[in-house]
Design a protein around this nucleic acid. Sequence first.
DNA 1: CAAACGATTTTCT
DNA 2: GAAAATCGTTTGG
Length: 201
Amino acid sequence: MILPESFYTREDVVQVASELLGKVLVTNFNGEYTAGMIVETEAYAGVIDKASHAHGGRRTSRTEVMYSKGGVAYVYLCYGIHHLFNVVTHFKDTPHAVLVRALEPLDGIPYMLQRRNKEKLVSAVTAGPGALSAAMGIDKHMTGARLSGPDIYIEDRGIQIKSKDIIAGTRVGVAYAQDDAMLPYRFWIKDNKYVSKAKGL
DNA sequence: CAAACGATTTTCT
DNA sequence: GAAAATCGTTTGG
């Protein structure tokens, strides 16, 4: 079942981030169907979060899509190389978003390997926000796309993650956010080999 | 209009 | 473990 818009249009972006664990991100275009279970996320709490692009109500052409109603994609280019895939949440004019940091490949694995120039399935194929975007064929052209299909969507396949297997921790790569860098806004599935091994655990 | 930087990954030592 | 790669966005002149 594809997640309804009401899943995203909630006030607590941190809760949405934790509930996205175990859901399945699907892209399906050019006849290439790929899907992966979300195993790691981070919440970005809009204007009050120093780590967010929209901190302090900053509103530019790049961040404009974060101010949309929840349920759309926000993809942006980092370090000139990597596309980072985010899910916009909350209501219109409130720029909350969830960064999807890692997936466990489920379907269309040969396409993922091809996109990543890998011979066989290793955790590095989808472990990390830039890596999973490349594996799923996501780039900045997806920004603003609704996550209800047909090209890209998130579905619930009935996978239940036990609460004891959900770990909360600090976010990665946001040291510049000072005190907000300490917030437990990162969630991942315990012992899943596809969780990114980025420093800061 | 020019300059600096980043929610990262890969490669080399 | 450390450093390079690389460019759109943002900020300052």
